[in-house]
Write a protein that binds this DNA or RNA. Structure first.
Lengths: 216, 216
DNA sequence: GTTTTTTCTTAAAGTACCTTATTGGCACAC
DNA sequence: GTGTGCCAATAAGGTACTTTAAGAAAAAAC
């Protein structure tokens, strides 16, 4: 009898923890927004009601070529990558996303045309997603989010501009060093194959770059 | 006396034309906005009062390395380019802008840090510019523009993403063909030196690509 | 209309990077 | 234990692209 009571208590405690834990995730998105532009209670409620949590396991896809991207994704925990497969079957990483990053095929999301991209979890991950129609409502009913997302998009644009500049002006070695300097937390977390694909070189050539650097 | 009268008339007529002409320019920006999201009279008035027209001649700069980019620029007529100069003195074109395009160093505009970019007119051009503080007022006083500029920025982001994908996955020849297909009006208008710099290859190599293509 | 500058082309030698193939190491499944 | 990926490293031969130099054509400046 005593044992039973303890076991029920334990279960309840675990359940409680899970609820707290899940609530924490959407709250971390809310505080993320709130840090950019203070939200009122209505706006917070909209976020709570329209983003839903999802858990994806390593190697699971949240978008595949040919699908229309109908969800915008915020990463709470874990790591994902977005990539293209060319006609020779080679993969090319367009973007990684770890904690507090957004990921999605914006082009497909807006045009509602089939995406040419894949988004795959590289680790077991926890994400928050919103449907396109809800995001549109978000922008109409709570115009503040236009401003927030305009700034996010501008920041993303700047980093892609820098990447283009690097690609047309730097060697693979320079791009690798810049990657390490810019994303030290990624560099320790993902394989060199993935980094090579992001930089636009073969893993073999990245390996020779690394060797050369470790020697000098 | 008659001659004098005629000459005054002519002058007035020219002056009149210029005024009409100038008014037309800001109106073309207004109808550009209006096509994206219908503007009311207040919003139109704000645009009329806060964008100012400027004429720049070929080879003139509207931004130079080290300057903070404090203006956002809309091209009414002409053609400009934005580029970086690397440590070896080579120029790398990040973007062109012709009629109805926006150009500016968004990173510097927001951070107010010195830009690493140049923006130079490649033809005599007519542009409309807004100061940063006025654009911020635009966003606060007329929230609709957050939405408009969010969409512009998203479109720009998509095209830079495509460019990154191309740079890491395609050969110079493929990128050249794509450039021609995507921007036929630019291809006829700017020199191959500039196109090469945009694609990230030397003019000499672009020349061999062109030769190879003209033969087959 | 002439000079000056810029653009386009060609060619040869050099370098950055790719392809293919082979190896060994490490994690995970059966 | 043995098989089965997946990842990192290495090497040799090949290709894409650069560098340098030089000449001709076109455009811009005077």
């Amino acid at each position: 009898m005593l044992t039973l009571a303890v076991s029920i208590l334990t279960m309840r405690s675990i359940r409680q923890d899970n609820i707290t834990f899940q609530r924490m995730h959407i709250e971390s998105l809310i505080s993320y927004f709130d840090n950019h532009l203070r939200l009122n209670e209505e706006e917070k409620a909209f976020v709570r009601n329209n983003f839903f949590e999802k858990r994806v396991r390593r190697r699971q896809f949240i978008l595949q070529e040919g699908d229309v991207c109908r969800l915008n994704t915020f990463v709470v925990e874990g790591c994902l990558r977005m990539y293209m497969v060319d006609e020779k079957g080679r993969e090319h990483n367009l973007q990684f996303a770890v904690e507090n990053w957004w990921i999605g095929d914006i082009g497909s999301f807006h045009s509602e045309k089939p995406s040419k991209l894949y988004i795959e979890a590289m680790e077991n991950s926890i994400i928050l997603q919103i449907r396109k129609e809800d995001q549109l409502r978000l922008f109409v009913e709570h115009p503040k989010f236009n401003r927030i997302f305009r700034v996010f998009t501008e920041n993303a644009l700047v980093s892609f501009q820098n990447r283009v500049l690097q690609n047309i002006s730097s060697t693979a070695e320079e791009r690798y060093l810049d990657f390490i300097a810019r994303y030290p937390y990624l560099f320790n977390r993902i394989s060199n194959v993935q980094i090579a694909s992001y930089l636009g070189v073969t893993p073999e050539f990245l390996s020779t770059i690394r060797k050369k650097r470790s020697q000098s």
